[in-house]
């Protein structure tokens, strides 16, 4: 039975089936809808709510609801609603690009380690372990401190510290799949190593990597907020983390300036986790049959 499954699994399931499973899950769909809503808000919202998030529009520290400012104003009298709308774009962009960076590094390292084995694997996996035991926040802080607090350096820093899990998952998938018959068949029919890695094995290892990457998006958004809380954010770009970070010292007296972006992050990360779970169910036949 077990052997049967293992042989069947590599065949790529019809895309339709994956979609069906995904959309059957109530929570996954909810997450997706929220995520789309937030993305729409971030990218199209500024057209409908054109207040510049950097303009000082009203009295500082006006609580939510004051004089038509739905979410109030911050310490410089800037509109928090506008900051949330415009911040969505940047937070999501940082989340996805950082996850993409970790995915890129993780898959690269994991696939080579898994495929070649031997000293390549030894070296690459020791490197992965090194990154895994590093205190990620501290390491990211060092990177941002060295290269300055720009969106690019923050994204790269988050990507650079969170790829280890992707690398390990990729490697273990490669270790399993590279021994399977269809890979041997491919090799016998003359495929070179690179083609084997990227055309034959990787597509079949994609499922867990996609799920892991989806979760990394949420983690990256919270990571950005964490860095911003410690003051490491780009003051020229509005992101939710930046809103939290710059309002931090007023937390005792103007709690809403910190909680509102906090709630935005919470909802987004929750939505991403729901989508991630949904993807996991849809892509993983073992779980689905249960």
């Amino acid at each position: 039975m077990l052997e049967n499954e293992e042989i069947e699994e590599p065949t790529i399931k019809p895309v339709k089936e994956i979609f069906l499973t995904f959309f059957k899950s109530y929570s996954a769909v909810t997450g997706l809808i929220i995520l789309i809503g937030i993305a729409v808000m971030g990218f199209i919202g500024p057209l409908f709510y054109p207040t510049d998030p950097f303009d000082m529009v009203w009295m500082p520290f006006s609580p939510p609801g004051t004089d038509g400012f739905l979410l109030g104003t911050d310490y410089l009298g800037r509109d928090i609603l506008s900051q949330i709308i415009n911040g969505a774009r940047v937070s999501i962009a940082i989340g996805f690009s950082a996850a993409l960076v970790s995915c890129f590094i993780g898959v690269g390292i994991g696939s080579f380690a898994g495929f070649y084995g031997g000293w390549v694997e030894e070296t690459l996996m020791r490197l992965t372990e090194f990154f895994q035991v590093l205190p990620t926040l501290l390491f990211a802080m060092v990177i941002v401190a060295l290269f300055g607090s720009s969106v690019l350096s923050i994204t790269l820093a988050i990507g650079a510290v969170s790829w280890a899990s992707v690398a390990r998952i990729t490697r273990s998938e490669f270790l399993r799949i590279k021994e399977l018959d269809f890979v041997l068949a491919s090799r016998a029919s003359g495929s070179n190593n690179l083609a084997l890695i990227f055309r034959v094995i990787l597509p079949n290892a994609a499922a867990p990597i996609i799920v892991q990457s989806a979760l990394l998006v949420g983690a990256a958004i919270t990571f950005e907020a964490g860095l911003a809380f410690l003051g490491l954010s780009d003051p020229n770009v509005i992101s939710w983390g930046q809103v939290i970070g710059s309002n931090r010292i007023y937390i005792l007296d103007a709690t809403y300036t910190v909680t509102i972006p906090g709630i935005a992050i919470f909802i987004t990360v929750l939505a991403i986790s729901l989508v991630g779970d949904g993807l996991n169910d849809a892509l993983n036949p073992k779980l689905r049959s249960r």
Binding site: F54, D55, L76, V144, A145, G148, G231, L232, P235, S246
Partner: peptide
Amino acid sequence: PGLRPNAEYTKAALKKIGIDVTVRQSA
């Protein structure tokens, strides 16, 4: 850090006279 609001204010204020200010955050 206590002067960060001043720097952010400078960005908003100088926009009104056509100076594009970039706030630089030192590590």
